[in-house]
């Protein structure tokens, strides 16, 4: 369960200080699917970074279960990201020189698994997203939808508790968007994940159990 209490995040831009998040207080129970919407520059990605242990707030606390993400050092935040949180990015962020199989395996590298274990788990993850026969392909040899499936496999191969998706369908056409959202929803249901999706797309947001709106760093529940 996530618990954010009075989270504020400020960035220095030259002599100016920009407030990306302002006193955000939020609780997300385990297993919930949440959509976060808002205009560009409203603070969506900053909030996702706080939830994903990628950054620390300027003020306030962020708890994931027992762990206080606002206080932990870089090393421990890295361990939490490696074990508990999966990321899916708008631009897929696959490593272009690695095959689909190897890209998925990168998520297992920090866990210290053996080669055979890594291979079998990555293959199973690709199978789960419908790309069992594309493991040897480079990202450039795959369509956008397939690349995002590989990214989802990479996020889920370590069996995290939380999946954070930042505009996961932003680079996809409508048909592929629906396929990817069907896949994410299915995985969320099957695995009991906490799924948090940042999106501009209302069609995507409507699929979530809970919708949040963030504007100028201020978070509001959407009825």
């Amino acid at each position: 369960m996530y618990e954010l209490t009075n989270v504020t995040k400020k960035y220095d831009q030259g002599k100016r200080s920009v407030t990306a998040l302002s006193n955000v207080t939020l609780t997300i129970p385990d297993g919930q699917m949440v959509a976060i919407q808002g205009p560009t520059g409203g603070g969506k990605s900053t909030l996702l970074q706080m939830l994903g242990a990628l950054d620390r707030p300027t003020a306030g606390t962020v708890h994931l279960g027992e762990a206080d993400l606002s206080r932990l050092g870089d090393g421990k935040l890295g361990v939490i990201r490696a074990t508990k949180i999966g990321f899916v990015f708008q631009g897929f962020n696959l490593i272009p020189t690695l095959t689909a199989q190897e890209n998925v395996e990168t998520a297992l590298a920090p866990l210290g698994l053996g080669h055979a274990d890594r291979r079998s788990r990555a293959a199973a993850a690709l199978e789960a997203v419908g790309l069992g026969d594309r493991g040897g392909h480079l990202p450039a040899e795959l369509s956008g939808g397939q690349q995002q499936r590989v990214a989802i496999a990479r996020a889920l191969v370590k069996e995290p508790a939380v999946l954070l998706a930042d505009e996961p369908t932003g680079n996809l056409d409508e048909g592929t968007r629906d396929e990817i959202m069907d896949l994410l929803e299915g995985l969320w249901r099957d695995r009991g994940l906490t799924l948090i999706v940042v999106t501009h797309d209302s069609a995507v947001a409507r699929r979530a159990q809970r919708r949040l709106q963030i504007k100028q760093g201020v978070l509001k529940e959407v009825a």
Binding site: G78, F87, N93
Partner: peptide
């Protein structure tokens, strides 16, 4: 940069 940022996001340590 994006590649290393992604690897850090999925848990790779600085040392790695």
């Amino acid at each position: 940069t994006r590649e290393f940022g992604t690897l850090k996001a999925i848990g790779w340590s600085n040392g790695k």
